[in-house]
């Protein structure tokens, strides 16, 4: 039992490390070759995990080899457009200038019902509202509506807007984020002083505190103080 416990621990760590090294794209959107590798890795890890008769290295070597293949394919895809089109395919424009491209739909083996369903989920019930619909290599459908049908932006209405940056977290779960404080040229004493103004003596009592680009401090104290 102990052996299986340790083997599981090792293989899990290796698979997590492998998926991390494969890059962030793995988690959200898988290209065909990435999907194949992800499935194979999961399968390869489970066999030596449960079968003590199989040497651990028989699971680790193929996992590392698949990681190498994946990184190599990603690298070559980055360098060569031709290679990328071979490995990932190319996007198909299924609706062009508001007109459904039958041939493209047929080539992608994407039927009309699927197209209409996907358009509905994207918020376009009427196909005549769509200027372009592109079937991406990951299988996602990107929809570009006709200019009269898209949401109005402040730019359309010629309304000036203020800069909206990213609020910077200064305290997370009671821990002061010194790096973030330094980034906005502030220090802990400033933070403590600001919190004291709201009756909070210790940053430990803060669940989250962030500073927006207007210099406004947002915070929420813990329900149960430490």
């Amino acid at each position: 039992m102990l052996v299986i416990f340790v083997r599981t621990f090792i293989l899990y760590s290796v698979v997590v490390l492998t998926m991390r090294l494969m890059g962030k794209r793995q988690i959200g959107q898988l290209e065909p070759f990435e999907l194949v590798i992800a499935i194979m890795i999961a399968e390869l890890a489970t066999i030596p995990m449960e079968d003590r008769g199989i040497p651990l290295i028989n699971g680790l070597v193929p996992i590392m080899t698949l990681l190498f293949i994946q990184v190599l394919i990603s690298f070559l895809s980055l360098k060569s457009l031709w290679f990328r089109s071979i490995m990932d395919g190319s996007p198909s424009i299924v609706v062009r200038n508001g007109k459904i491209q039958e041939k493209e739909l047929y080539n992608a083996r994407f039927n009309l019902n699927e197209l209409i369903e996907q358009l509905r989920t994207k918020g376009y019930a009427n196909i005549s509202d769509v200027e372009y619909a592109i079937l991406e290599t990951s299988g996602d459908l990107s929809v570009i509506p006709k200019s009269q049908k898209r949401a109005v932006t402040p730019g359309d209405l010629k309304i000036d807007t203020q800069y909206e940056g990213l609020p910077i977290p200064l305290v997370i779960d009671g821990l002061i984020q010194t790096k973030n404080l330094n980034m906005v040229n502030l220090d802990e004493s400033w933070l403590k002083l600001e919190l004291q103004k709201f009756g909070i003596d210790r940053p430990d009592d803060v669940l989250i505190a962030s500073l927006d680009t207007q210099g406004k401090l947002y915070f929420q104290s813990r329900d149960h103080k430490k």
């Binding site: 090294l21 070597v61 590392m64 080899t65 190498f68 990184v71 190599l72 690298f75």
Partner: peptide, 15 residues
């Protein structure tokens, strides 16, 4: 690139 180089070395070690 560093990762690819590291993995290439690992593959050579395997072989």
């Amino acid at each position: 690139m560093k990762l690819l180089a590291g993995l290439t070395i690992l593959m050579i070690v395997f072989v």
